[in-house]
C-alpha cells in the first residue's frame, strides 16, 4: 500500500465565516506539501479537519483509502500530527508523555519502549528526557511535539508550523529531519516562512480566504519571480476579489 491523502471539496464554515471553502487536492507518497497562506487563510483549519479533529461542514477526506469521516480510528492510526504550538501536558516529562502517546497508539511492552527510544533519538531529546515539559525551552517543546508525531513511524505526517519559534540551527535540524523521512511518507506542513518551501517542499499550495489560489512545484513558483512578490500578488488578488464579491 502506498501512502496517499485525498481531499475533495472540503469546507468549514463557522457561522457566516467560510474558513475553508471548497478545497480539493491529493498528495502522493514521497511528496512534501508546503501549505502557505496569510494568517487566517484556513491552513490550520484544513489540517484540523484532515487529522480528524474538526468535522468539516462539507467534503470528503481519505487517508490511505480510509474515510476519516465515516471511520476515523483506522485513518487516525496512520497519521502523525503536530498541532499548532506543539501542545503537550506540562506536568509530564517528555519520557512520560511519549510513553503515554505510544500507549494510546496501542504499543505495549518492549515495542512501546522501542518506539519512544527511536523518536527520542531522532529529535535529540536525551538531555531533557526527565524534565517537566513546562520547564523546557520552546525549541525542546517543539521537538517533544515532533517526537510524538513520528514515534509510530506514520505513513502520513501533518505538521502545523513545525519550525515556528525555532532558532536557525533548530530550523535546519527540523528541515533535515523532514527531508530524511520524506521518501516513504506523505508529508503536509504549514508555514508562513517562504524560504522553507524551497528548502524542504516538493510542492507548494497557497491558500487564501479558504481557497487554493496556487498549486505548483517550488521550481515553478521560483520561475514566477521573487517568492514574496508572488505570495503578495496571489493572496492580494484574491482579497480584492473577495472584497468586490
Amino acid at each position: 500500500m502506498t501512502a496517499k491523502i485525498e481531499i475533495r471539496d472540503l469546507s468549514k464554515h463557522f457561522g457566516d465565516l467560510k474558513a475553508v471553502d471548497g478545497i480539493s487536492f491529493a498528495v502522493e507518497q514521497g511528496e512534501v506539501l508546503g501549505f502557505l497562506g496569510p494568517n487566517g487563510a484556513g491552513k490550520s483549519t484544513t489540517m484540523k479537519m484532515v487529522t480528524g479533529f474538526l468535522p468539516p461542514t462539507a467534503g470528503a477526506i481519505s487517508v490511505c483509502g480510509h474515510d476519516m469521516l465515516a471511520d476515523p480510528l483506522p485513518a487516525k492510526r496512520l497519521i502523525g500530527y503536530l498541532p499548532e504550538g506543539a501542545p503537550a501536558y506540562p506536568d509530564m516529562t517528555p519520557a512520560e508523555f511519549l510513553d503515554f502517546v505510544a500507549g494510546a497508539r496501542g504499543f505495549r511492552g518492549a515495542a512501546r519502549q522501542a518506539c519512544v527510544d527511536q523518536a527520542v533519538d531522532r529529535v535529540n531529546l536525551d538531555e531533557v528526557l526527565h524534565q517537566r515539559i513546562e520547564t523546557l525551552s520552546k525549541g525542546f517543546k517543539r521537538r517533544v511535539g515532533l517526537a510524538q508525531a513520528i514515534l509510530h513511524d506514520p505513513p502520513v505526517l501533518i505538521l502545523d508550523e513545525p519550525t515556528d519559534g525555532l532558532d536557525p540551527n533548530q530550523k535546519h535540524e527540523v528541515r533535515e529531519l523532514i527531508r530524511g523521512m520524506a521518501a516513504g511518507k506523505v508529508i503536509i506542513l504549514s508555514t508562513h516562512i517562504l524560504e522553507e518551501v524551497a528548502a524542504v517542499c516538493t510542492r507548494a499550495i497557497i491558500i487564501d480566504r479558504g481557497h487554493v489560489v496556487l498549486d505548483e512545484t517550488p521550481a515553478a513558483l521560483a520561475a514566477r519571480g521573487r517568492l514574496d512578490d508572488v505570495f503578495r500578488e496571489v493572496t492580494s488578488r484574491d482579497t480584492r476579489a473577495g472584497a468586490s464579491a
Binding site: R77, G103, H152, D153, P155
Partner: peptide, 29 residues
C-alpha cells in the same frame, strides 16, 4: 509503513488514558 499496533481495544486504550490522568493528580500538589 507503520508498525501494526499491538493493542487497540477499547479497555486497553481507556486504561492508558486512565493511568495518565490518575498520575497527573499526584504529579502536582
Amino acid at each position: 509503513m507503520s508498525t501494526a499496533p499491538l493493542a487497540t481495544g477499547f479497555l486497553s486504550v481507556t486504561g492508558v488514558l486512565f493511568r495518565r490522568e490518575l498520575k497527573s493528580y499526584f504529579a502536582t500538589p
